[in-house]
Amino acid sequence: MSDFASEAMLRLVRAGLQRQGLAADGPPAVRSAHVPLADKRTWLDRLWQAHGPDVIVRLGEAVHGMDDEPLLLALSLARDPPDLLQRWQRLERFVHSRHRVRVSQPEPGLLRLRHVSLDPLRPPTPAEDLLVFGFLVALCEYLRTPGVQARPIGQPVWSRSQRAWRSPVWPDDVSSWELRWQARPESPLTEPGPATPEGWVAHLQARLAADPGRGWTVDALAREAASSPRTLQRRLADQGLSFTQLLAKARLAGAARLLAADSMPTAQVGYVCGFADQAHFTRQFKRHTAMTPGLYRSEFAPRLG
């Protein structure tokens, strides 16, 4: 399976180096999408030794010039930093990443993040920590989140503030960070739903289809429909439907559209449309269409010539 996340990260890293005038110091060329962990660590260590940690943490700023990057388009649908981190964590699970970002939210407008390895004997290196957190901070700003500030936990001043990195003396441990922003209070929606039951269901389907990769729950959809969760479930049951059925239909329809009309890798289609991993995507898609995603694309995607 093509690791689309590695491909996207390589494109972003190269763009980030180019922004800093260091295009020649890019990661090693590889024939496949996946960069071996040892090669990645060797290159990052060389970059750190040659230019210092500031260059690595600034690589993430490349997101501000890559609006057409498909993975960024999926992440940019996040409503706020907690939603963004949920999508990032789902991406880590989807591609079976060895490294994970653990998240806690002690109060509104504040996240505490820790970069860890699934293998306790091979923790992320400081360079890998800075690479990941640099991208996450840049992504928060890409969402136009107001007042983004970030720093390693324990530092007295913010390393990132007013969309600029300071040049601090970095601590030995850069695996744990604080991320702060100006949280906007959520206002209840008062949008009236369509008058007919059929129109109301179509209204819900449109909400789900607009962002199938969101971590939808009954509560979240009810809020979008200016309804209580209990009322939403009752009205769906009156139509012979359930929240689970509605969400699955939206995700499968979105996947079918992307497979038929786009060259996006099939694994990335699964992630963008909210499936847990490639196996789950293939299984669910075949159950409902009697075809794997790859076969569906070969049958229905337009052919040049």
Rank of each mutant, 00 (worst) to 15 (best):
Q105C: 13
P106Y: 08
E107K: 13
P108R: 09
P108H: 06
G109A: 08
L111Y: 05
R112C: 13
R112V: 14
R112Y: 04
R112L: 13
L113M: 08
R114T: 14
H115E: 08
V116C: 11
S117I: 05
D119R: 13
D119V: 08
P120R: 13
L121S: 14
L121P: 00
L121D: 15
R122I: 09
P123M: 10
P123I: 07
P124L: 07
T125F: 01
P126H: 02
P126I: 04
A127Y: 01
A127R: 01
E128M: 10
E128H: 02
L131W: 09
V132E: 14
V132D: 12
V132Y: 03
F135W: 08
L136R: 12
L136Q: 14
A138W: 02
A138M: 10
L139Y: 02
L139Q: 13
C140P: 08
C140G: 04
C140A: 15
E141Q: 13
E141R: 14
E141L: 07
E141C: 12
Y142A: 12
Y142E: 10
L143I: 05
L143T: 03
R144E: 15
R144F: 05
T145Y: 01
G147M: 02
V148A: 05
V148Q: 03
V148K: 04
A150S: 10
R151A: 12
R151I: 00
P152F: 02
G154V: 06
G154A: 06
G154P: 07
Q155T: 12
P156I: 03
